[in-house]
Amino acid sequence: MSKTFSFFLGCLIPNRFPELEKASRFVCDALDIGLEEMEGASCCPAPGVIKSFDKTLWYKVAGRNLSLAAAQGNDILVLCNGCYGTLKDVSMVLREDEGKLGMVRDSLSTIGRTLPYVPDVVHIVEHLCFDYGFEEIRKRVTSPLSANVAVHYGCHLLKPARYRGFTSFEDPTFFDELVETTGARSVPYLEKNSCCGAGGAVRSGLKDLSLDIARKKAASIKGADCIVTPCPFCHMQLMEVSEIPVIYITQLLGLALGGTPEDVGMEGPL
């Protein structure tokens, strides 16, 4: 077992796209990454609405999720840029701001929970690229793919940069490299680094505007067989406007690691 994480599901993965949960569990199993269930975890909470409405509430609900992982003695693995935006940012703030850490600890004591330390929060793409490593993945690829892929990073995998630090947000390459471990080829496109338009509570509040932003992005993709995403929210958004299939990163990896379409929750081959 390479490393065991507390596995944070969030909302969209288990409650809208369980096929992505299935693919992610398959890939972690194939790569020998341990997953411990976070029983009783809630929404991260959603950075768009909850962080906009009430930052104190945002810290406290996120703090409760962090405390579940701390009780297991693990770092947290997330599958969603939104969950990452909340839990990573809150974990970073709690490490540098004793006042906020105290506030969260006080809140947890009222529900019988503690936060003895602040667990690290890792996006599955971040873990695979910077910890697990491309070489180790390549060694395990048994069914190389030949697709041309439009890679979408999404915003909160990269920003705010002060709480990320593993790459340049203007011209990142790590996710392309991860996609290419499968044999697929990442193709350039004009709006590659643009937002999908879903975040910041824009999709939930002002859907037309949000889809207009997504359409601009999707329309600039040329010569790709599919879009690959690291986030179920970007995924949902791009599915609605894209003429080519939208695939989540663990679905793509799962196929390359020898999984069947069924193993990764797909209806048919790529």
């Binding site: 369980p18 299935k22 029983e39 609900v61 929970r113």
Partner: peptide, 24 residues
């Protein structure tokens, strides 16, 4: 898909949901 019908979150644990409600 072979997953639990409800995820192992507040959807499966009423006392966990109660904790979240108390914070809210």
């Amino acid at each position: 898909l072979g997953l639990s019908r409800l995820p192992p979150t507040t959807h499966s644990y009423e006392d966990a949901l109660e904790e979240v409600r108390r914070i809210l």
